[in-house]
Design a protein around this nucleic acid. Structure first.
Length: 511
RNA sequence: GGCCCAUUCGUCUAUCGGCUAGGACGCAAGAUUUUCAUUCUUGAAAGAGGAGUUCGAUUCUCCUAUGGGCUACCA
């Protein structure tokens, strides 16, 4: 069927969106853009019990940070507004009733307590209770009760639900874009609740089908946890007479825990030392906090790149992809079928790759706030110069200060290992000599200083490593950092001399 | 328990019947280097098991095992 591609990301605002959800959104987005279609954001807040304030804003902000653009939906509007299911409640009752009239659904008056009791009874006998063709004629349903009785109960305000009347012993043949053909016998399925009078809201199944139809969704791309309810959804389309406009389905493999069993959950995050959420989150109810990729210093492009490759691959050996490249390369038939374990290490690697590719100017903008935090006030040009020198050795912007503080601040203490190794023997004397050599250089540029110092080292027959590492101890205070002339040319002659003097004056050489 | 989905190096994955099974992360070694990194090179590392189809199975089919999901008036 060829029709305009329209996909939706339909999260439930029950908490922060975790990275599995972000990936689902991403694949929807890539698919939409690749096919010139539209991306819809629908909020599925049909569970009044689990609603969490702030979750919706979190979702919208997360998508924005990731660069996943919404064409239609909550926050942007569109021709099928409203896109928040709680604001569409009157729509669903009509469709639920239509199903009852057509004989595809029925009223059920059992209370949750009654159902619990029945389940317990079954369990006690070692059986599993299923609300299906075997029991619906014996329970308090409109199939068992007289029409008058049903009317009476509804009129007097008894609570009721509408359940789907799952056909008996029929094979539903389905097609999934990722998994191929799937068939299920309806006798193994139960009569799912479609609508509940208690809060006048539909359940996921009804709301989903009705909205996808009304919003003209062409492809449903969602997590694998929905595969078991696909038969019900097929049947719902049939019951409504919408099979000719039924969307195609693609069920994505799940994101699994890095170690151990199970799907990646909200709990895995902080404990295991990596974020499972795109943004920092504070629970409005419990006050619990969770790390986010954004606040932990990941670039959104790196985060997206990493996520895109978790369950999809281009079939080539390219692994660094811009969003546009992902859009161009993406296709559902290269999505893998099995669950993918999330790898924190790879996320870091991706971030480092993006760090190396960032321009000095971009990094300067990110680095400036950090510098200011440490009381350093320099031009963007200077910040960019330092970033350019150090970006190869950093994974996060947060690494920068540790990596570069010596450019701006003289060492106040000296690394023990470096001191032990180099602040002894002839080295202090050589450093004093080097001080005079440096003092005599007028053009302190990187090239000139290097030329003069190297010539001097050669003339004297000193060991390159001895001299340079001793100088490093004086200027950096530790055995780390970029080439020494990057440092000398940056801090300038006078500062070099001051730092050398400070080391000589303050640290007693070993033997 | 029932139903459904899956199963290639530790991990993410390539392979659409011909494989000396490729790449990446991580790991190890080496090279480069004034240090730390980066970078480069090299290395160890995989087809869950059993049947069948076939001249030939990692690739197709079935069984078993294992992993996962679902089994709510949650999504």
């Amino acid at each position: 069927m060829n029709r305009p591609v329209r996909v939706r990301f339909a999260p439930s605002p029950t908490g922060p969106l975790h990275i599995g959800g972000v990936r689902t959104a991403l694949y929807n987005y890539l698919f939409a853009r690749h096919n010139g279609g539209k991306m819809i954001l629908r909020i599925e807040d049909t569970d009044s019990q689990r609603f969490v304030p702030g979750a919706e804003d979190y979702i919208i902000e997360s998508l924005k940070w990731c660069g996943i653009e919404i064409d239609e939906g909550v926050g942007v509007g569109g021709p099928h507004a409203p896109y928040r299911q709680s604001e569409r409640r009157e729509i669903y009752l009509k469709y639920a009733l239509q199903l009852v009239d057509a004989g595809w659904a029925y009223y059920a008056f059992d209370t949750p307590e009654e159902l619990d009791a029945i389940r317990k009874e079954y369990e006690a006998e070692g059986k599993t209770f299923a609300y299906n063709f075997e029991v619906r004629g014996k329970l308090a349903t409109s199939l068992a009760l007289s029409a008058d009785e049903v009317r009476t109960r509804i009129d007097r305000g008894d609570q009721w639900v509408i359940r789907f009347k799952m056909p008996e012993n029929e094979t539903v043949e389905m097609h999934d874009l990722i998994r191929g053909d799937v068939a299920v016998n309806t006798s193994t399925l139960d009569d799912k609740v479609l609508y509940k009078s208690a809060d006048a809201l539909p359940t996921y199944h009804l709301a989903n089908i009705v909205d996808d139809r009304l919003m003209e969704v062409s492809h449903v791309i969602r997590g694998e946890e929905w595969l078991p309810s696909l038969p019900l959804h097929y049947l719902l389309y049939r019951a409504f007479g919408w099979t000719d406009v039924q969307p195609e389905f693609a069920h994505l493999p799940l994101l699994l825990k890095p170690t151990g069993g199970g799907k990646l959950s909200k709990r895995d995050g902080d404990k295991m030392g990596f974020p499972v959420f795109p943004l920092y989150w504070v629970s409005p109810t419990t006050g619990e906090t969770a790390h986010g990729y954004r606040e932990d210093g990941y670039f959104p492009e790196a985060f997206i790149n990493m996520l895109a490759l978790l369950g999809w691959n281009p079939g080539t050996e390219q692994e660094i992809f811009s969003m546009q490249e992902l859009i161009d390369a993406f296709s559902l038939d290269r999505v893998s079928k099995s669950g993918a374990r999330f790898q924190p290490d790879k996320a870091k690697w991706f971030n480092a790759q993006y760090m190396h590719r960032k321009s000095d100017a971009e990094l300067a903008a990110l680095y400036q706030p950090v510098l200011r935090e440490h009381g350093i006030d320099v031009s963007d040009e200077i910040a960019g110069r330092v970033a350019g020198i150090m970006k190869e050795r950093a994974t996060f912007i947060g690494d920068f200060w540790d990596l570069t503080s010596f450019f701006f601040v003289a060492p106040t203490e000296y690394d023990e290992k470096q001191t032990k190794k180099y602040w002894k023997g002839q080295n202090p004397a050589i450093l004093a000599e080097l001080r005079e050599v440096l003092a005599g250089i007028d053009d302190f540029s990187l090239e000139n200083t290097e030329r003069i110092v190297h010539a001097w080292i050669e003339e004297k027959g000193y060991g390159m490593g001895q001299v340079m590492n001793t100088l490093r101890l004086a200027l950096v205070g530790a055995g780390k950092g970029p080439g020494m002339y990057d440092v000398t040319s940056f801090i300038g002659r006078e500062e070099c001399l001051r730092r050398i003097d400070a080391l000589i004056a303050n640290v007693k050489p070993l033997e």
